[in-house]
Design a binder for these strands. Sequence first.
DNA 1: TTGAAAGCGTTACCAA
DNA 2: TTGGTAACGCTTTCAA
Lengths: 355, 355
Amino acid sequence: MVQIPKQQPAQPSAALEAVSAGPVAPAGPARGAVPTSADVARLAGVSRATVSYVLNNTSAVRISEPTRRRVREAAKELGYVPHAAARSLRAGHTRIVLMPTPEVPVGPLYSGFLNELQWALSRLDYTVVQYGSVGLGGEDAARAWAELRPVAVLAPVAMGPDGIGILKRSGAKVVITLGPDPVAGTHALIMDHREVGRAAGAHLLARGHRRVGVVMPREEGLDMFALPRLAGVQESGAQVVRLPLAYEEDDAARAAAHLRELGLDAVFAYNDEYAMLLMRALQDAGADIPGEVAVIGADDLMLGRLLRPRLSTVRIDLPSGEELAGLVDRLVRDPAAAPEVRDVLVASTVPREST
Amino acid sequence: MVQIPKQQPAQPSAALEAVSAGPVAPAGPARGAVPTSADVARLAGVSRATVSYVLNNTSAVRISEPTRRRVREAAKELGYVPHAAARSLRAGHTRIVLMPTPEVPVGPLYSGFLNELQWALSRLDYTVVQYGSVGLGGEDAARAWAELRPVAVLAPVAMGPDGIGILKRSGAKVVITLGPDPVAGTHALIMDHREVGRAAGAHLLARGHRRVGVVMPREEGLDMFALPRLAGVQESGAQVVRLPLAYEEDDAARAAAHLRELGLDAVFAYNDEYAMLLMRALQDAGADIPGEVAVIGADDLMLGRLLRPRLSTVRIDLPSGEELAGLVDRLVRDPAAAPEVRDVLVASTVPREST
DNA sequence: TTGAAAGCGTTACCAA
DNA sequence: TTGGTAACGCTTTCAA
């Protein structure tokens, strides 16, 4: 209460400008400074409130046409752009949807899915933020994400109940987990890749193959999908041998030789790309496909249809990005809705010539 | 001045809490409300300033160990997470790097590149925001982006000088365009896909092929790359025929027939995937490759090595994501640096068996 | 129809 | 060593 009580609480920035820009009172924004709505107001000769009304087309208030024009012209002249952070600070919420990025390139199918989802969300006027958790554990990652106060989070499987609690408590209206298992207290899109393995295993068994090799990519980060796919094959009742395979020709040749030594009569190759790699190595070594060994991939990529023999595969249907974005939007509007658990991964075999 | 004038200007939220949560003054945050640093301060019995000092490890100030502990415990108990928007509002800047997403799936090479870049930026502690411009024209898009006050923008080619002006004026320290041509006033990473076409054309000419078909994907959005690649082939001096091709087997069969009718002796197939598609159609129609018609792709994907004949291709080297992220970081620290124009796309032919 | 002012959650200056 | 307070840019209620 000693000095400068509350003399001119309204125009502090104007004071700063006077210092840095030169002359006195009604100056424009300082050179190099970003114009604010106050600058627009000053230039248009109105109050900040009026500027806000005009630029947001607030319908509850009637502003005269001349005033509107003056404000708009001032805004344009200054190149004024509203400040999203300030706006959402005031509003108390954001339109941010957080999508933690998978750490690893994760195949054309899934990344296409994420991409589509992203676009669909943008179209619904959400701001999609990709956040790398970068070496943070579950809870630390959740805290980092929570700083952005996202209205919704689409979390990969790693997220546990604690992380979810942190996000919810920070104001996230919706947390949706994508993964093999539901997490208590939130919506879940179950994407159980065991189904993929099961489909492949059942198909191979039906064709009379018992001893099945399952390709396990050596590439980091693919375990997330590879392990459940393996488990699925095992559940189908086939006799399973793991075949580690790096995405390189040399390693494929080695794996092909190994596979023949083991006397396996079929291979589930993780996906179509690894299948193509391994199939080529087998053919180069003189193996007959599917006579000596049957090969099945997954993801139903175009390339499978182009191989000879044509590659059998497991087709994976994921919901469209638009559909999912719609779900997110619906849940944001009605956050009280009971946790929804949806099985969204549908696997079906596409028999072709390689099995 | 009728009710509740300005009695307790300091604790408005506390007042709200009193209403919704029950008892009087020093309550915790209202149930369901997001805890703020003020809540932490209250619980720890210190001021907000002290909370800030403790949680940010401000070195300029010495806080007693017991106080630190009290603050930290209070924060943990409440599940306090700082509010990024408030922080950056106060700070006057963000660590947001805006990366407008391409509207279309754009091939494994480029999307891998973007993905890598994104991770590298996260690792440098930037927040990467993917923004879909969704039908906004250049300037409107720029304005939408500017609302986030990004410290840096990595813009696709579309951005013109006006858009750049808007971003710069809104406080973006760095704008980098990715595209075929530099834009005045900013840094540019020149990715000139004509080089790809030139390399392919030169290679085919050197092998004695004159009449070259150039595959033009019918898929939307790929023109961005396809047109310059076409132009590059034309510049190489070959006689060029455009071959529109959708990424489907049927259309490939049609295109293959058409190509043979035209008597072309070589094809540059846009990329390896289209090359594989077309090559298969040609082979199925009984064409000898490279005897009757030579085929060259681009991007040097693994699949090219697995085809028979092995696919010749144009290898594209882009800088690593880490390198680029480093560049962004350097420019952010030194925004005054003269605009840098770097040619980052290096194309080299990888001759194999298909030419 | 317009304006004044409060307040969103932070941090940083200055005083105690 | 700690606390009070102003200020970041915006929206919105209340008054005029």
